[in-house]
Amino acid sequence: MTRDEHTKKSIVLMVNGEPRSLEVEPNWTLSKVLRTELGLTGTKEACGEGACGSCTVLIDNVATPSCMVLAVEQEGKAIETIEGLSRDGKLHPIQEAWLEEYGAQCGFCSPGMIMTTKGLLYKNPDPTEDEIKEALGGNLCICSNYEHIINAVKSAAKKMAKERTDG
Rank of each mutant, 00 (worst) to 15 (best):
A156L: 06
V62R: 12
L34M: 11
I114T: 10
K44H: 15
T64R: 03
E96Y: 07
P93K: 02
S155M: 10
W28R: 14
T56K: 02
E147I: 15
M14Y: 05
E83Q: 09
E129T: 12
R3G: 07
L99Y: 09
C141I: 04
A46R: 11
A157S: 14
K123S: 15
K133N: 14
S144N: 13
R35D: 07
K118E: 07
A157W: 03
K32G: 08
L120D: 00
G119Y: 02
K44L: 09
L91N: 06
C67H: 08
L121G: 05
E45D: 15
P93G: 03
G42L: 06
K8C: 10
T29Q: 08
L85H: 02
L30G: 06
A157D: 01
E23Q: 15
K162N: 10
S86K: 10
E101W: 01
D4Q: 12
K123W: 07
C47S: 11
V24P: 04
L136D: 04
I82H: 00
P65F: 06
V72F: 12
T56N: 14
L70G: 09
E80A: 12
A71I: 09
C55T: 07
N61L: 10
T81L: 04
A78C: 05
S31D: 14
H6M: 12
E96H: 12
W98E: 00
C141Q: 02
T116A: 06
L30K: 09
D4I: 11
H148I: 00
R87A: 11
N16R: 07
G84K: 00
G137R: 06
E131Y: 08
L38Q: 10
S155T: 14
I114R: 02
I150C: 04
R20H: 11
H92A: 07
L91D: 08
E80H: 09
I114L: 08
V57A: 08
G53M: 01
M1H: 12
C109S: 05
C67T: 08
M115G: 05
N27D: 14
A156P: 00
V33D: 10
M115E: 08
E163I: 04
I132P: 02
E73R: 13
G107L: 08
M160Y: 01
C106W: 07
L136A: 05
A51P: 04
V62F: 01
S10W: 03
N61A: 10
G50F: 01
K9T: 12
E101C: 14
T117H: 03
